[in-house]
């Protein structure tokens, strides 16, 4: 039972798709070529003349009901009780890639070089030392934050229901966005 769930807050109205968070994450995790543990996706929506674009920076969402934890046959995933961080243990991973199938957000990335999966562990060592994840500290627009889900969810204008993302009821992702209202599903 998770005592208090940690969560990401991403202000998509600030994000300019510079991909600094992506590069910093890749560097910190020594991710293989083509493997993006954090990814900024760009979407275009609306109908002419009311068209718009927005960017979503996303890594592992440390879901409240994570499919990877449930379905990993090797128990390589655990959800930390103190803050709900979903931690992947590469030593237990057998490289079956089932987590890459079941995760709606494409968070686990299979590394052919190592024969196992890598994903965002929310820079947990840094976090335990009182620091912040590299995506948060590297964002030049200060568009990414971490905090407690119950507090972030109370912020005005935040949502998890975005038309371009998978339905949140699948795994209950611990992330909230501030985004223009036309991009929302709710």
């Amino acid at each position: 039972m998770v005592r208090r769930q940690i969560a990401f807050f991403v202000d998509a109205t600030r994000c300019i798709n510079c991909k600094t968070c992506e590069v910093a994450c890749k560097d910190a995790n020594d991710a293989a070529v083509g493997r993006r543990i954090r990814r900024v996706r760009s979407f275009e929506a609306g109908e002419f003349p009311e068209i718009f674009a927005y960017n979503l920076s996303m890594a592992c969402n440390h879901c409240e009901d994570p499919a990877c934890v449930r379905q990993c046959p090797a128990k390589a995933y655990t959800k930390r009780e103190s803050d709900g961080i979903v931690i992947h243990d590469p030593e237990r991973c057998i490289g079956c890639r089932y987590c890459t199938w079941v995760c709606p957000y494409g968070a686990p990335q299979y590394d052919e070089r190592e024969g196992r999966v890598r994903k965002c562990n929310l820079c947990v060592e840094e976090l335990d030392r009182g620091g912040t994840p590299v995506c948060v500290s590297s964002c030049p627009l200060r568009a990414i934050e971490i905090g407690m889900l119950d507090e972030i969810a109370q912020r005005p204008g935040v949502t998890i229901e975005i038309s371009s993302t998978p339905p949140s009821e699948l795994t209950k992702p611990s992330i909230r966005y501030r985004i223009r209202k036309e991009a929302r599903r709710d």
Partner: peptide
């Protein structure tokens, strides 16, 4: 499997997986 020698670990989560 990426790590076939660890295949026996696939039996670790019978209740859920």
């Amino acid at each position: 499997l990426g790590r076939p020698l660890s295949a026996w670990r696939a039996l670790s989560n019978i209740g859920n997986s």
